[in-house]
Design a protein around this nucleic acid. Structure first.
Lengths: 243, 243
DNA sequence: CGGCGTCAGAATGTATACATCTGGACGTGT
DNA sequence: ACACGTCCAGATGTATACATTCTGACGCCG
């Protein structure tokens, strides 16, 4: 086992295999529907079947793989409609997180946290132009949505939201990629941040219904810029997982 | 391996171990938070560590176990608030399924199916009194909710709903158990079935908002009859998984 | 006395041999 | 030609030995 490792991420073979496999699936290197064979993958990665099995099991938990009827795993395939539905679902769940935070009252510390993130986005988004501002927004946007999920203090809601967001195309940051021109991206950032502010305002004012509606509409931004080449296609068309 | 098997459900050791472990957790035999050790369980069940590992992995997918930081698994513990939240979440997801079915138009075949289930419940629920009617309602109620999840034709929504419903206390059939007297149970059945009919009616009339609202309210029935002894307790109080 | 390295034991991680299952190719009989 | 059974290759299921890692207790040193 003294050979050079292909992947250095993580300390155990299981973690490396998990990362490696996830990466290959998300990049679209392994298309949806593909049956994964333990032996083949193990030989390919120069490890035994055990950590491969373990990795596949974890990816099944994430929803990237599905267990095949007679045992084994296959790469889960997503249709264009699945992508739409996953985004819709994220909107519904974030809407629930926002509504519950408003109804039950958000924890002051967590509320302060999300407002700080929002303020930081405010500090550059209105005049953003560089690619650096772009990356910064992506990062802070993800932080905002994580803070939102935590805001109502429900582990259950937070866990489900984490699951849905783990699908790369349903992630709040997914919209950023694939934007053709910088102008459209800037516009999306401004609209998004406006909604962020309104959302926090509604939660603070205990306006549950408004908070829920805003969160749902906010998720729609991700839908705006789905690959146009896919838009006209059949609902049954498989869709690449990657952005 | 000629010895008598303790559990006959399923054909492989993995399936038996999965079933056995799930049963013990759901029954409250293994309390929440308990760390599970592969060797101990393997010896107890007279099998090797491998199928035990596999079983734990599957139960983690179901959400009954959680992976411990340094490896291994622990029984997920649910507080009283988690139970409330899981029921709320089921209402939200069923509400989404109903709304999407209304907005997008439900498949005629599936619509016919859910109406048949509803009609069958109608045939006895208004005059139900025996324990047999009781069991029949439980069964048909579960079928109704499965049909509802399938109605909008979204695999994504259906999968998430399946996950949430797999938590025993969030299942649509959970309310039936623990009902102190038959009168209260009968009342709950009648109210529930009234909501079933209204729900189908709203979906058929393409009234998305109404369908969503009814589905959410319908889930609240499960909340009505949580163990009264728990009601007053702190949100942090661990809560048995079982009914 | 308190902080910190060290070590033992127990847990999980990994490799591997063997067992079992499954599905399709092939032949045989009708 | 079709139905059925057999068989084999290749897949997953299982047991087990060994490697590694983690944790907590103990004792040394500052």
């Amino acid at each position: 086992m003294g050979a050079v490792m292909a992947e250095r991420r993580g300390s155990t073979h299981t973690k490396r295999a998990t990362y490696d496999l996830r990466h290959r699936i998300v990049q679209g290197e392994i298309p949806g529907g593909t049956r994964l064979y333990e032996v083949a993958l193990a030989e390919e990665m120069n490890i035994s079947r055990t950590p491969v099995r373990e990795a596949m099991s974890r990816l099944a938990e994430e929803g990237l793989l599905q267990r095949a009827p007679g045992g084994g795993f296959a790469v889960r395939s997503f249709t264009y409609r699945d992508v739409i539905d996953a985004i819709e679902l994220r909107g519904v769940l974030e809407g629930t997180a926002a509504r519950l935070a408003a109804e039950r009252g958000a924890d002051p510390g967590k509320l302060k946290e999300i407002k700080e993130i929002s303020d930081e986005i405010d500090s550059f988004v209105w005049v953003a132009e560089s690619a650096r501002d772009f990356d910064r927004y992506t990062e802070l946007n993800a932080a905002f949505h994580d803070a939102l999920a935590a805001l109502c203090g429900s582990e259950i809601v937070q866990a489900e939201l984490r699951r849905v967001k783990s699908l790369p195309f349903a992630s709040p940051s997914a919209f950023v990629l694939g934007q053709a021109d910088g102008d459209a991206a800037h516009r999306a950032m401004i609209i998004g941040q406006t909604q962020h502010r309104a959302l926090v305002e509604a939660i603070e004012a205990r306006e549950g219904a408004r908070a829920e509606a805003i969160a749902r509409e906010h998720a729609r931004i991700a839908r705006e810029n789905l690959d146009p080449s896919e838009t006209g296609r059949s609902a049954r068309t498989p869709c690449r997982v990657s952005r």
